[in-house]
Simulated scan of single mutants.
Amino acid sequence: MKKEDCFYLGKIVRKYSFKGELLIKLDTDQPDIYENLDAMFIDVRKTLIPFFIESSQLHKSDLLRVQFEDVTTEADADSLMKSDVYLPLELLPKLEGNKFYFHEVIGFTMEDKNYGKVGTITGINDSTAQALFEVENNGNEILIPMNDEFILTVDRKNKSILVETPEGLIDLYLE
């Protein structure tokens, strides 16, 4: 399994018991849908390795307490500490309407209701307080705040997003 075919589920943050149980901090708004998985992929030295789950349950809302089949000692658990955890993309719940996953809209065309075609979405910058669309426009990078009020429609069929940004925002990048 390649990382491109997966989505980030969370990170192993600490051990739970002396029998190899681990706590995974889930990066999701719906932790309960990941409570009864059969397996997950763990990034071990830049390689995704499948680990089969013996048992799992939610622990304090956003932590998943997991016992993997072949992780039975503290030493086994130590070797996985701070590792990232992934699942195949097909396990992502389908989103509808104007809700979308960040990876899903890369390559979409962005149009502004007033400005017209803005460009192609090349990435999402979520390292700031406000997530930003990174849009390429003839060699220029335009950053559009990912604000629900700006997003009018997400058209998956035609791979486009229609936004209505404040007057002058796009021009700031093109002058």
Rank of each mutant, 00 (worst) to 15 (best):
S61V: 02
I42M: 04
T73G: 00
N36G: 11
F68Q: 01
S55A: 09
K46R: 10
S61D: 10
S61W: 10
S61G: 00
V66N: 09
T73K: 02
L58Y: 08
E69S: 04
L64S: 12
D62G: 02
L58D: 04
E74S: 15
S61Q: 12
R45Y: 09
H59W: 15
Q57T: 13
A77Q: 06
F41S: 08
P50R: 09
A77K: 03
A77C: 07
R65D: 10
S56Q: 07
I42E: 09
D38T: 14
K60C: 06
Q67V: 08
F41Q: 15
A75K: 13
D78I: 07
T47A: 12
R45W: 08
D76H: 06
R45G: 05
A77I: 10
N36Q: 11
I49V: 15
E74V: 10
L48F: 05
D78S: 06
T72D: 02
A77G: 11
S55D: 10
I42H: 09
Y34D: 04
L37S: 09
M40S: 13
T72E: 06
D38K: 15
L37Q: 12
A75G: 00
F51R: 09
K46N: 14
L58V: 01
R45F: 09
A77R: 06
F51M: 13
F41V: 02
D70R: 03
L58F: 08
E74P: 03
Q57I: 01
Y34W: 15
D62T: 12
V66F: 04
Q57P: 00
V71E: 05
E69A: 03
R65Y: 06
V71C: 03
Q67R: 13
F51I: 05
L37G: 05
M40W: 02
K60G: 02
V71H: 01
F52P: 00
D38C: 07
D62K: 06
T47P: 03
D78T: 10
Q57F: 01
L58P: 04
Q57S: 14
F68E: 01
E54F: 04
I53C: 07
A39S: 12
T73P: 01
F51D: 07
S61R: 11
V71R: 04
N36E: 13
T73E: 07
S55M: 07
E69Q: 12
